[in-house]
């Protein structure tokens, strides 16, 4: 077995007296499609904030690609290959779609040594793949919801990630749009990107994931094959509130 791309080792995050993530561990193999589920407030977003560096874990270690990144700021983790989208899209509003992606290329993919022309052609390739080609020069503040979701994924991809964390990229989309985004994620995975998908839309998680982890109140309550996790009585209890 190849060495893991991500290893989260007993990570705990406390805010004052409140423990949002409690002693969570997980290991991702390269190329894996990983689903992260759990009710609202169960600590999913806090956990991926600790992985992406938006927050620093109180205890525990995050190892990425063989290096301990626990103390690195977010931008350095992005440069090492952890990219993410946000639950509520966070576009650079004053910029066009093209410029949004150029930020990622300029800063995250530094050292790839591309000149301006090559940068633009890389961006165009990514946008075409994401079905945003016609929006290249449109201001990001004028995009529709699904276009924003796609642009966030495109921006993440432009940073040439090894691991992509998609935080509820399908929330608020129609079912055909959900399928579109799902197909995109699967296509990205085929290109070799490991993906963590946080999602409430169960059929999407089931279709997408090789493996699923369920959190409740900051703890892991089940982990394994999608079907097994969904059949787990504790998971059903957490979701149905029985």
């Amino acid at each position: 077995m190849s060495h893991p791309v991500l290893h989260v080792d007993q990570v705990t995050k406390r805010f004052g007296g409140f423990t949002a993530v409690d002693n969570v561990s997980l290991t991702l193999r390269p190329g894996e499609r990983f689903g992260l589920i759990g009710p609202n407030g169960s600590g999913k977003t806090t956990l991926i904030n600790c992985i992406s560096g938006a927050l620093r874990s109180t205890e525990g270690r995050v190892t990425f690609d063989g290096h301990d990144v626990s103390t690195l700021p977010a931008y350095k983790r992005t440069r090492r290959g952890i990219a993410r989208s946000f639950q509520i899209p966070r576009p650079f509003k004053s910029m066009t779609v093209l410029e949004n992606l150029l930020v990622a290329i300029d800063f995250a993919a530094v050292g790839h040594g591309l000149n301006a022309r090559q940068q633009e052609s890389e961006v165009t390739a990514i946008l075409d793949k994401m079905g945003l080609g016609s929006k290249t020069h449109v201001l990001s503040s004028q995009l529709s919801q699904v276009e924003l979701r796609k642009m966030e994924l495109a921006r993440a991809v432009a940073s040439r990630p090894k691991l992509l964390i998609s935080d509820e990229a399908m929330a608020g989309l129609s079912s055909s749009e959900i399928d579109e985004v799902l197909d995109l994620l699967i296509a990205l995975n085929k290109d070799g990107i490991t993906i963590i998908m946080i999602e409430h839309i169960m059929h999407a998680v089931m279709r997408f994931s090789d493996r699923v982890l369920c959190m409740e109140a900051g703890r892991v309550i089940a982990e394994g094959a999608p079907k097994d996790v969904m059949a787990n009585p504790r998971v059903q209890e957490a979701y149905l509130g029985v």
Binding site: S52, G53, A54, P73, A74, Y75, K76, T78, R79, A83, R84, F86, R90, P91, F92, K93, S94, M95, E99, V103, A104, F107, A108, A109, V110, R155, A156, S159
Partner: peptide
């Protein structure tokens, strides 16, 4: 400009 538009997104896009 990325900082001005959204500092958290900037940081997570690799901007120091």
């Amino acid at each position: 400009r990325a900082v001005r538009d959204d500092e958290i997104a900037a940081e997570c896009t690799g901007v120091p």
